[in-house]
Design a binder for these strands. Structure first.
Lengths: 113, 113
DNA sequence: CCGGATCCTTAAAGATACTG
DNA sequence: CAGTATCTTTAAGGATCCGG
């Protein structure tokens, strides 16, 4: 998404389907694998794993595996990951303010067709 | 992209590949079809048409066809479309400030593997 | 010049089953 | 619990040709 900014063309995984939602789930503190899987209902373990690995690589979150039985793994936002909340909130604020207009425009178009 | 905000789940075409870039291209004023195609180098007419139609439906821009020969069509941002520049700029600002950290984290990960 | 129509490729995501 | 492995699906995007 942020690749729309001309001088920046690196492919950051933010505009994909899950990254922003995962950040939201981690906003209040560290969460375990299944604690993420539940609110992100429908996400398969494969896709969740892929998303978390990519975010870990990009320094957005940390993965901590505890050597216990049963195993326990916790994911936590880094400062970098947390910094993304700011532009995300800007987007949410836009939605709150303008999404009704957009829906209305879309409905009007459908009515006209 | 902005669908990450919990109470908002409507599928707005912002996080896709072209919408944000088209808005940037229209930021300075109305543009013709081919004037958009050039800076968005590589976009095919089909995809550009699809994107513009979707944005028109959502009230982000207007399409004005002049009955001339050769034909001329101009696209221009609406106020609603222009309002998206604000959250987009927030994203760009994040990129300017934090993208180097992300790139560094990614490079460090690759080096460790 | 501005696209519509058709076909094709590919990457993200989902379904399902299985394991340390 | 926290994944891995494999297969299938799907929708975005691209290539190409055609028409008003």
């Amino acid at each position: 998404m942020f690749t729309g900014c001309p001088p920046v063309a690196a492919p950051i995984r933010i505009g994909d389907k899950w990254t922003a939602k995962i950040i939201r789930c981690l906003e209040q503190g560290p969460r375990r694998f299944t604690e993420l899987q539940t609110p992100l209902r429908g996400i398969t373990p494969k896709v969740l794993t892929e998303s978390l690995r990519a975010m870990e690589r990009d320094g957005l979150l940390t993965r901590t595996a505890y050597q216990e039985i049963p195993p326990r793994v916790e994911y936590e936002l880094t400062d970098l990951g947390r910094s993304l909340l700011e532009p995300m909130n800007a987007g949410c604020e836009w939605s709150r303010r303008h999404l009704p207009e957009l829906i209305a425009a879309r409905d009007a178009w459908h009515a006209a067709s």
